[in-house]
Simulated assay, not measured.
Amino acid sequence: MKKVFVSRPIFPDVIERLKQYFEVDAHDGPALPADKIAERLADKDGAFIAGDPVGAKAIEGAPNLKVVSNMAVGYNNFDMQAFNAHGVLGTNTPDVLNETTADFGWALMMATARRITESEHYLRAGKWQEWSYDAFTGSDIHGSTLGVIGMGRIGQALARRARGFNMRVIYHNRSRVAPEIETELNAEYASKEDLLKRADHVVLVVPYSRESHHTIGATELTLMKPSATLTNIARGGIVDDAALIDALRRGQIAAAGLDVFEGEPNFNRDFLTLTNVVLTPHIASASEATRRAMANLAADNLIAGLGEGPRAGNPPNPINPDVLKK
């Protein structure tokens, strides 16, 4: 039987699915560092990875490796240049998490705008003694302007939600979406600079790459309204976290909601000194149904990519499909 490595604890029934086809080496503990992952991959034909780094050294040290299946949409944890050079197929899990992630992005934006976390901490600390007209006054979502940076599937799902709140929607993307999508979403294309100046609530939904690194930095934050909020459900590194902390501290923008961070799970601890930021630990896709769908899709990709199961040789979500032709 072919050998596969599973990098994180995952649903037992998914492990059992993999065991129908492979000899499974399943890690059942905290996340492994890159060098330990490389060691476990050395004799494997495939891997089920949950966002862990798979770099050139790991690929070069695993001569039998053919498929690495990522239980995520983003794949900046993969060195795709090394994958292509060694004929290793990478796969991901798009689409199954779109609506759940959009739900969470909306919740995070609303919690940020309405100061939910800050007011809850106030209540829990026993500070609530009386009503005050200006206690925790935030900003409205309804009737405001939503700025979406990254109008892919999740960005479009966010824009659909905006209709129920009577919001104006402006968006920026590497390229404009089709006219019929703009019409459906009642969304207006704008330059990044124009969007930042006009939006009351900016939500980031762009994939991470060298080009998108620090899409929002000190310069961009100066363009935003002092009353505006920034929500990041994309990837750490899209925002310059140090610049954002400075902007929040100085009141340059009103508040931020962050599900992702540079260097996570490590992050800039100065965020913890701020009251005008809502922080969550990369959980935008974390509903039971969606995480199961992601895990099963990642398993489908691995099984098919290694030539097994009903879709043998035809995995649903190849990142670099050209290697299948070699």
Rank of each mutant, 00 (worst) to 15 (best):
A284M: 09
R235S: 00
V260H: 05
P9S: 05
R198W: 04
N266P: 00
N64P: 02
M109Q: 03
N98I: 14
D103H: 07
R235C: 04
N77I: 06
T117F: 06
S119H: 14
L65I: 13
M1W: 12
P281W: 00
P33A: 01
R249H: 07
E130N: 10
L221F: 09
D241P: 06
N173E: 04
F271S: 01
T290R: 04
I49L: 11
N301P: 00
A247R: 09
G61T: 07
R249M: 01
D45V: 05
I49D: 02
P94M: 13
N92I: 12
V96M: 11
G237C: 05
E220S: 12
H201N: 11
I181L: 15
I59A: 13
L258P: 07
R311F: 15
I49C: 11
G87M: 10
P63M: 10
V177T: 05
E220L: 14
P63G: 08
D259P: 02
A111R: 03
N268R: 12
I253P: 03
E220R: 11
M167W: 07
K2W: 10
K325Y: 11
H121K: 15
D246C: 04
V203A: 06
D140E: 14
N70V: 03
A135D: 02
L146T: 00
H86S: 15
L32F: 05
I216E: 03
V278P: 00
V24E: 02
N77D: 00
D35W: 10
T280K: 07
K127A: 12
T275Q: 14
N98R: 11
R17W: 09
L244Y: 05
D134G: 06
R291G: 00
V278T: 14
M167K: 04
K44P: 01
I10R: 11
I233A: 00
H142K: 12
